[in-house]
Design a protein around this nucleic acid. Structure first.
Lengths: 231, 231
DNA sequence: TTTGTGTTTTAGGCTAGCCTAATGCCCTGT
DNA sequence: ACAGGGCATTAGGCTAGCCTAAAACACAAA
C-alpha cells in the first residue's frame, strides 16, 4: 500500500530525547521511573511529564503503568542508548580534542547531542579511537546499542582495608568535578580505604602516590569503584 | 527598579536565528529583504514570515517597512554575523579536523550552529588558527562582528582573456560541490578565461596545470573570482 | 482614473510543550 | 476499615511557530 509508507522512525524531538534519557537513567537499577522523579530530573512540572508519557507510550517508546511509572520499550531503550552514546562521545571529544574541562563538558554535550548527526558522532569516535569510557568514567554504549554494566561500589560504602580503582564519577556538577580533579580523584586512580568515621562520616583513603584524602559521604557516594584486592 | 532587571539579550530561538541569517543574506547587496524571498529561503509560507517579522521588529532586531520589506538593525546584524561566524567556523572545523566533504558540511553546520556555545566556537577557531575563510571561500566574520567584503566577479561574467583566482563558491548544494571539486574548481585555483560561447553559453577556462574546463552558465554564476591580471 | 495582478498582511486554526488548579487514585497508619 | 496525605492525572490555558483562506494593498497598464 502506497499510503502506508511512512518514515521508519519519525525523528524524535529534543524534548522526547531528553525524556527517554531520563527514563533510562531512572530505571537503570530496574523498576519504574516515576512521574515526579522524571519531572525533577528534567525540571518540569509533573503534569508535563504525564502528558509526555501518554504521547510516548502511544508511539511505543515507553510502557506506562498508570499511577505506577514507566519503563522503556526495546525501541525506547535503543533510542535512549543512542542519545547516551552521543552525549558521552561528545564529552570525550570536547575534553580530549578541544581542551574542555571535565566539569564543563556536560552542559555543552547536553545541547550538541540533539544536533549532531550520526555521522559526526562516528567521526568523533573514530578520531578518538573508539573510546569505551567518557571523561567521568561512564561507559559509552557501542554504535550497536550495547552498554557495559559493571558492578561497582561507592567509596562511601567500600570496606575499610580494601583496594579500589576509581572507575566512574557519578556527577555532572562543575564545582564538585573541579574539586575532585584538584584532589586527583579522577577515574583510573588507585585507592586504599584506610578508615571511615562513624555516623556517615568521611572515608579516609590513600592514593597510589602515598598521599591521603578525607572524602565526605556526599562525595563518597558519587565515586564508583571496582575492587582490586589481588592485583 | 528591581523588576526592570531582565536578561540583556533574551536568548534567540532557532527560528529567530534562521530568520536573521536569511535577512542578512538577502540584504547583503543593500535594499530590503521581501517577505516572499525570506519565505522561499526558509521554506515556510509567506504569512509565517509576516508574523515573525512583526515579532522581530518589536524586539528591535529588524526594521520593517510594511509592504516593502525588512532590514536588520545594528543589533540584528550583530546577531546574524555571529550566526554566520558559527556556521563558517563549524564548516571549517568539520572539513579540516573531521574529514567531512565540503559538500556535506553545510547541512551539519546548519544544525550545530544553534547548539554550539560561544566557547566551543572559539576553541574550534583557535584549533584551526583563526581561519579567515570557510571551505567554500566565504569570509568568516571576526568574533568582534566584522566581515570582509570583497568585490568579486562571477566566472560567467568575467572578461575573456582575464586572469582570475577562484575566491568563493556561492553554493551549498552537495551534488554541485562534489562535481566542482572533481573538476578542481575550488577556492584558490588560478584560472584564465579562454573563451565564452554566445547566448549565455559556457565559459572556457584554463587551469594553472594547463588543463581546460568548460563551465556552463549555471555553475559559472556561482564561481566568484578576483581579477589578478598583473601577478 | 480605474482596474487587474501579484504580493503582503490579517484572520483563524493547529501542534508541541510547557504551566497552574482541580480532581482522582493508592496506600499507609490508626 | 477507612481517613488522610502524597503522588498522578485531568482540565484548561499559554506561547512559539507553523499552516490555509480571505482581505488589503501597491503599482502598472489601459
Amino acid at each position: 500500500m502506497n499510503a502506508a509508507i511512512r518514515s521508519p522512525q519519525p525523528p524524535l524531538t529534543r524534548s522526547v530525547e531528553d525524556y527517554l534519557k531520563s527514563v533510562f537513567h531512572l530505571t537503570s537499577q530496574g523498576g519504574f521511573a516515576t512521574t515526579s522523579d522524571i519531572a525533577e530530573m528534567l525540571e518540569v512540572a509533573p503534569p508535563s511529564v504525564s502528558g509526555m508519557m501518554k504521547r510516548l507510550s502511544e508511539t511505543g517508546l515507553i510502557e506506562h503503568v498508570p499511577y505506577r511509572g514507566v519503563q522503556l520499550t526495546p525501541q525506547g531503550r535503543r533510542a535512549a542508548l543512542q542519545m547516551i552514546r552521543r552525549h558521552r562521545i561528545l564529552e570525550s571529544y570536547l575534553t580530549s580534542k578541544l581542551g574542555f574541562d571535565w566539569g564543563d563538558v556536560h552542559i555543552e554535550a547536553e545541547r550538541l547531542e540533539h544536533a549532531a548527526s550520526e555521522k559526526l558522532i562516528e567521526r568523533m569516535a573514530d578520531a578518538l579511537g573508539e573510546p569505551r569510557y567518557d571523561p567521568h568514567g561512564a561507559p559509552i554504549p557501542t554504535a550497536a546499542g550495547e552498554i557495559e554494566e559493571a558492578e561497582l561500589v561507592t567509596l562511601a560504602e567500600a570496606g575499610v582495608g580494601t583496594s579500589l580503582i576509581l572507575q566512574e564519577v557519578g556527577d555532572e556538577n562543575p564545582a564538585r568535578l573541579h574539586y575532585l580533579a584538584e584532589q586527583s580523584l579522577t577515574p583510573g586512580m588507585r585507592l586504599t580505604v584506610i578508615d571511615r568515621q562513624p555516623f556517615n562520616g568521611p572515608t579516609i583513603v590513600r592514593l597510589s602516590d602515598g598521599t591521603t584524602r578525607v572524602v565526605g559521604q556526599e562525595l563518597g557516594l558519587l565515586l564508583f569503584c571496582r575492587e582490586t584486592d589481588g592485583e
